[in-house]
Design a binder for these strands. Structure first.
Lengths: 402, 402
DNA sequence: CTATTTCGTCATGGCCGTTTACAAATTAGT
DNA sequence: ACTAATTTGTAAACGGCCATGACGAAATAG
């Protein structure tokens, strides 16, 4: 099953091209590819009306995309209406693929996604990475990457780029991990450690998770708040189909929004930050449990069994989340709030208090809160898809590369 | 003195044009005009290198803009370097003008701004509009508009559009006032009431104030939070040189961010909203004063004289603002926070507590807080400039109009 | 006074989407 | 079954637009 790609308009890169004839051509190639990708299957005439060019122009654009191996002709459509049936076009299932990788505290994962959005190869390995040096970890990851790439190549795919999701803060250069507390990495440039055969992007796993929700989630929302709690509590802000990164790349620090200004002190210097109420440690302490791996499973299991103190701890966390989110919603007026990552698994016990707080504090119709169905797969898929989006946004690059 | 226009890239409208040769031409015309506008005076060759086109292409674009009366030739530049000196180009001081208007609770104002950004005509009238019906108010405003337009036309300017700033919530259609509590207007479509000779835009005065800060402010920041307190407390969020409006147009409701979740109830349904601590009424009550016109002047005067209760009230308001802004800054990581509108005048007494709160609650370098130097003029100037920006973003429209 | 550099313009050329025309393939109507 | 209408995809002519390369003009450097 091919995941539908909701986004229709090219989203950035292609827009930066100079306004010259060549740039125009490149943008139009991207628009054709986007249109077909969004619809799954489309005739030349349908593409033409959809993107506002003439059939003749679209024909030459399609020819070029077919020559590059990015589009395929499926043959005549089943005619439902009068007139000659169009010839269906589809994004090719062979050719460039996006390689996504994820470095977690207790696992490594890699996958390959084709232009259609389908996962075509994957590899996972469970390893305890907490406190382990970057060198060996990335070496092990590289092994998985080579494995996945080999598997993809057997299916006539070639890697168009590598995107790595890490549980920490990443510099805006998209290469160096500034700080990953759970791994104990600081200012580590991953570029020299990874295979340099393809373009590399490194980003926060929460950001990739939010992008996955944008591109693969159920809704078609282009403005939402994606809240996740892997390292701290982060909220990726998606505005008009793009990630808001902030001037220093620090946007989305929901964990340090003040919830009770006179509350307990926080390492950040403030008092009563959200993380003091809904952070991993805080919830465990409130529930009377000791830290260990697979926190989420533990909490969910106990809550399922009816453990009163765990339920109370989660309810209080939901309340705190609701207060912080009320502020965020008032400020940004998003279409929805999406709970992802660890929060998705705990949502049954968080949501009631969270929504009570959110609706109680809003005058008009409250902002709907949904739960991501991507679960823990989000960041990995988002990473792989970010590479695919790059190709969709500027198909001409693959021509230069082959 | 001509105000510098910081923004260089076209910011929206022109980007939506179809990617056809005609659209490309229009975008390039806009880029040339933007380049000259941003620099004040530029030669053809300088424009060419700046926007990435050849000198030949820029020549034809400039010719067209001169023919339309949007650019003027100033003659040869003073040669500082080797080589033939260029011929300086400037944005024309005649031709299209933006007409900005403001409806306040105690005044009406209109001004005309030319393409250079200079105010060329203005008219102000003090009237008590609180609770007055839209009809008579707009009629009086229309009179001022006609006056300003006549004055502008004597200077060889013609109105390219009318933008009206109102103290209330405006629908996304840019025509109807949904709710203006201080005027007691509800769902009023201003379009039929205003002279229909030119394109009309209506928007919240806080939004126009933020845009004025973006276009005319000291900094060149493209990402900031502009906080103002005219009706309630609003924060306009500027991201990448554009206003974040939210899905329903309600973004920026800083006044209802929870500051103390168990605080006093707020009409919005919540408890302890910022407005309960830093809103007009709350500050007056805390200072032991009764509501009347010119709140800001009153408070500033008393604080200046050393009135302890007023100073305490303002300090507490500053603290509450600081708490709410800490949340916003953590979420958005803006370049700066700008205090505008009424807050600018009260900043000497608000800032210390506000900044203490903001720096105390942030780990890294705190987000700098600045005070707008535009003062109460902001919304009016922003409105007029928004029309000018429209011309700069797509100069071809004026050719169709004349 | 000459060589060099830079500016603005002109003619040429190539690229690209549009326009117009036409053949192919299907449905609707008789 | 046959014709008319409709829609699709392609081909050729057209026009617009930017790039290229060359040239004269106007300044500086030596």
């Amino acid at each position: 099953m091919t995941a539908p790609l909701h986004e229709t308009r090219p989203s950035g890169a292609a827009r930066a091209l100079p306004d010259t004839q060549r740039g125009m051509r490149r943008r139009n190639l991207a628009r054709v590819l986007h249109a077909v990708s969004a619809e799954g299957s489309l005739s030349r005439a349908a593409v033409a009306t959809r993107i506002g060019l003439t059939r003749a122009a679209v024909s030459t654009l399609v020819d070029e995309l077919i020559r590059w191996g990015l589009l395929e002709e499926l043959g005549p459509e089943r005619p439902g209406r009068v007139g000659r049936p169009g010839s269906a076009l589809t994004v090719s299932g062979r050719g460039p693929a996006g390689i996504g990788a994820e470095i977690g505290v207790d696992h490594l994962a890699v996958c390959a996604v084709d232009l259609r959005g389908a996962v075509r190869a994957r590899a996972v390995r469970h390893t305890a990475n907490r406190g382990r040096a970057p060198g060996p970890v990335v070496e092990e990851l590289t092994e998985l990457v080579r494995q996945v790439v080999a598997e993809a190549e057997r299916e006539a795919l070639w890697p168009a780029g590598l995107a790595v999701a890490v549980p920490g803060l990443v510099a805006r250069d998209g290469r160096t991990v500034v700080r990953a507390p759970n791994l104990d990495w600081h200012d580590t440039d991953l570029d020299p450690l990874l295979p340099g055969d393809w373009p590399l992007t490194v980003d926060n796993e929460a950001n990739f998770g939010a992008l996955a929700e944008l591109w693969l989630g159920d809704g078609t929302a282009r403005d939402f708040l994606h809240v996740s709690a892997e390292i701290g509590i982060g909220a990726a802000v998606v505005v008009d189909g793009g990630l808001l990164r902030g001037t220093r790349g620090f946007a989305g620090e929901l964990g340090h929004v003040p919830v009770r200004p006179d509350g307990p002190p926080c390492p950040c210097g403030g008092r009563g930050c959200l993380e003091q109420y809904a952070g991993e440690e805080a919830v465990l302490r409130a529930a009377g449990l000791k830290p260990r791996e697979d926190m989420v499973g533990l909490l969910a299991g106990r809550a399922e069994q009816g453990d009163a103190s765990v339920r109370a701890a989660l309810r209080d966390a939901g309340t705190a989340l609701g207060i912080a989110l009320t502020g965020a919603v008032n400020l940004l007026d998003p279409e929805t709030v999406v709970l992802g990552g660890a929060l998705a698994g705990l949502s049954p016990w968080l949501l009631p208090a969270l929504e009570a707080e959110l609706t109680g504090r809003t005058a008009g119709p409250p902002c709907p809160v949904t739960v991501s169905r991507l679960g823990p797969e989000g960041p990995l898929l988002g990473a792989a898809h970010s590479v695919v989006r790059g190709v969709l946004d500027d198909p001409a690059v693959v021509a230069e590369r082959s």
